[in-house]
């Protein structure tokens, strides 16, 4: 059992408060990508960060931002380590994170099914602009790997959907 000190809790909250570089409405904590912070020696911490997608180019900016925030908080030696296991899932996005995504014009991911199930593409996805459920898929891949491009048939606006992973 790994115990967490009050300082580690504080540093975890700080690391988690960093905005996502591509979706700045979300914090890294709301995205669910900061796995832990450990004080390994006085003035030295290790942060575990998990990528949304294996090739996510934002991971380097996230690491740099976490290092900067913790340096500013008086930690001279910060190592951000990328961990893959267990794999990140869109279920790790918090309820507050989902609300912010929708407010930002991105349809949040639906809860994922059991592992190994088929890729869900046909269930209703609500338009973040007008709330209509009459939306259609334009492309499985959109502005980033984690989003799909859809169009609302009611208000005719295209929108991004954070697709389930």
């Amino acid at each position: 059992m790994v115990t967490t000190t009050a300082l580690e809790e504080e540093l975890l909250a700080l690391a988690g408060s960093v905005p996502d570089p591509e979706l700045p409405v979300l914090t890294l904590a709301e995205l669910g990508v900061v796995r832990g912070v450990q004080l390994t020696a006085p003035g030295r911490v290790e942060v575990q960060l998990t990528p949304t997608y294996t090739g996510c180019p934002a991971i380097e900016a996230m690491s740099a931002d976490i290092e900067r925030v913790l340096h500013d908080h008086g930690i001279p030696d910060v190592e951000v380590r990328t961990v893959l296991s267990p794999p990140w899932t869109t279920d790790a996005i918090t309820a507050e994170g989902r609300r912010k995504l929708a407010e930002f014009g991105i349809a949040p991911p639906r809860p994922t099914g059991p592992a190994g199930g088929p890729v869900a593409v046909d269930l209703t996805i609500r338009c973040p602009h007008c709330g209509s459920t009459d939306t259609t898929l334009l492309s499985r891949f959109s502005s980033t790997a984690c989003k799909a491009l859809r169009r609302c048939e009611s208000c005719r606006e295209p929108f991004d959907h954070f697709k389930e992973l």
Partner: peptide
């Protein structure tokens, strides 16, 4: 295994 578990979803 960790990479495979991650990548298989993509």
């Amino acid at each position: 295994a960790p990479l495979a578990a991650k990548a298989v979803k993509e």
